[in-house]
Computed example of a mutant assay.
Amino acid sequence: MLMGYMRVSKSDGTQTTDLQRAALLEAGIDAELLYQDHASGKKDDRPGLVACLKSLRDGDTLVVWKLDRLGRDLHHLVNTVHDLTARGVGLKVLTGQGAAIDTTTAAGKLVFGIFAALAEFERELISERTVAGLASARARGRVGGRPFTMTPTKVRTAMAAMGNPETNVGELCDELGISRQTLYRHVSPTGEIRADGTRILNRPASVRRTSRKP
């Protein structure tokens, strides 16, 4: 079964999904199987996307007009497609950059593999910048203060930094303003996200709260 996802950034009427809808309908998707959002592509917790992903089943294919309609963050895109693949769900991009991606075909899987490699390269660059930032902070005599909760930004930074074996955990905690206990509750020693970290990333911005748990 084919399901379609559409997205525009603004909900003030200046942007519409008409062009995307027409392309998806022409691709053979039933109008009742189209999901949409009026939200930034940098947001992971878009209600239309969440509903769409939950509706997909083994053997289904998610179709988007352009790859940036699914999201603008490369890591989010890679993680989303990996999750779909693990569930037996394909992804097909109709046009624009990424139009060669169709994970139901061998060639499409190869193209997506290149995207995944670029995402890993970007993660390594983030790790290098984090290490450099920690060294700079240490040179300025910066020390950690009262530990604060993890935020989505801190979780992503911690994942990137912990994936680098050269990262000094104590310095990372000082830079983020958290304790080791808080760090390891959200991210593993090798940079893999844990349940608490996933909850932080998936929690709607309107209900995020600042906690001071150590």
Rank of each mutant, 00 (worst) to 15 (best):
A135G: 05
G163P: 01
G98P: 00
V131C: 11
I126Y: 11
F115R: 06
G141Y: 05
G133W: 02
G108R: 04
E128V: 03
E128T: 05
T151H: 09
V111S: 14
C173S: 05
T104Q: 14
L125Q: 15
E122A: 12
T95K: 14
V143N: 11
T103A: 02
A132K: 13
S136T: 13
S179V: 00
T149K: 08
Q97L: 05
G98Y: 06
G141R: 08
S179Q: 06
V93L: 11
A107Y: 05
G177W: 05
R140A: 15
L176D: 12
V111Q: 13
A99M: 07
E122N: 11
V111H: 15
A119Q: 08
V111P: 00
I178P: 00
G144M: 06
T95D: 13
R146K: 14
P152G: 01
D174P: 01
G96V: 06
G145V: 06
E171W: 12
L125V: 15
A119I: 00
I114H: 08
F112V: 03
L172I: 02
R138F: 05
T103H: 11
A99I: 00
G177F: 05
V143D: 13
A107R: 06
G133T: 05
E171C: 01
T130W: 00
M159P: 00
T157Q: 13
E122S: 09
R138A: 14
P152I: 00
A135W: 06
L134F: 12
R138V: 03
L172Y: 07
A106F: 07
G133L: 01
E171L: 10
S136D: 12
E166Q: 07
G163K: 03
S136C: 03
S179P: 04
A158P: 01
G144L: 09
L134C: 15
G96A: 06
G133C: 07
R123N: 06
C173M: 11
M162F: 06
L172P: 10
G133A: 11
A132M: 11
D102R: 09
T149Q: 11
F121G: 10
F121L: 14
N168H: 12
R129M: 13
A107H: 13
N164S: 14
I114S: 10
I178Q: 02
I126M: 15
G163A: 09
A119E: 03
F115H: 08
D102S: 06
I101H: 08
R140I: 01
I101K: 04
L134Y: 06
L134W: 03
V143P: 02
T104W: 04
V169W: 07
S179M: 03
G96M: 08
A116S: 14
P165A: 07
F148G: 15
T157S: 08
I101D: 15
K154N: 02
G133M: 01
T149S: 15
A137W: 06
N164G: 04
V143L: 13
V143M: 12
A160C: 09
M159I: 07
T167Q: 02
M159A: 07
A100V: 02
R123S: 11
P152H: 02
T104D: 15
G163F: 10
I101M: 09
K109G: 12
M150P: 04
S127W: 03
A117P: 04
E171T: 01
M159L: 04
L118Q: 14
G96W: 07
R123P: 01
V169Q: 10
A100C: 02
E124G: 13
T105E: 08
P165E: 05
D174M: 12
A160V: 03
G144E: 08
